[in-house]
Design a protein around this nucleic acid. Structure first.
Lengths: 137, 137
DNA sequence: TGGGTATTGACAGTATGCTGATTATAAGTA
DNA sequence: TACTTATAATCAGCATACTGTCAATACCCA
């Protein structure tokens, strides 16, 4: 009646699960998770964002962002500075250690992605990316 | 250096997140989650599996399965019966209520999927499914 | 200026998803 | 049979993800 194994939602969940596990395994020795990496990746592009701005950009819930930043602070990769214009907000900034990991972690991300999509041709990979972009938001 | 917004892993996470939220919204009035639905979907196909067998089939961690079944039991959709051949294990069975929801919930799943992929043509939907199947496992 | 409304981040509560340890039971082997 | 190893489920602990609530602060409008 409903073939869950072939349904898009289930497949999406399982493929995501596999990619997540692959990446997490590589990040483990940095005490980082894929979500923490993604937050770092946005901060490498643009530092000094508030938590709300980060939540918006990353599409991560603002209460979840709080915990992620707690853990990045614990690893001394980021810090909360008072926001100069808004006493309710923080400015989230990378530490030197956080900035210094960019090359190393991005190289890992690329390697993991290559391994993850090894069964796809370059064209298929690009098709998949395009289709996923259509489904975002 | 690393465009996280265009990376496959990030896109996969965000598309999954959107589909999950759409489905969850519809399941809310049944007090169910998409994961609980997927467990039900496997049980509609084959009842009386042990937790370990369910974990294997659904690719959900065995400790997570335990909690999912707790909550299906609380909703009186499934129950743990003693396994006839193995005193360590349970036989997980659907209740009549659990069996009775099949048509209704599958209809919702199909409707949500249609809404989710509305921006794709039928051919694109099928391409996406095929590519995801290649990336599973 | 004053008052209503919106926003920022914190906290509590719930549901996944996983690791590692533990208990009970099965199964295989000497 | 006795010993060892493997398996089924549970529990504790941690990291997401989200809901709803709250206090502090900002903003907007009359």
């Amino acid at each position: 009646m409903f073939d869950i194994e072939k349904s898009l939602g289930f497949l999406l969940a399982k493929v995501h699960q596999r990619g997540y596990a692959l990446f997490k395994e590589e990040l483990d020795r940095y005490n980082l998770t894929p979500q923490q990496f993604s937050l770092l990746a946005f901060l490498w592009q643009e530092d000094t964002l508030s938590q709300a701005e980060l939540a918006h950009k990353t599409q991560i819930d603002r209460t979840t962002i709080g915990g992620l930043i707690d853990r990045l602070e614990k690893e001394q990769l980021a810090e909360r500075l008072p926001h100069p214009d808004d006493r309710r907000a923080y400015q989230i900034c990378l530490t030197d250690k956080g900035k210094g990991l960019e090359q190393e972690l991005c190289a890992i991300a690329r390697t993991v992605t290559d391994r993850f999509v090894a069964r796809l041709s370059a064209a298929e990979h690009e098709t998949l990316r395009t289709l996923l972009e259509k489904l975002r938001d």
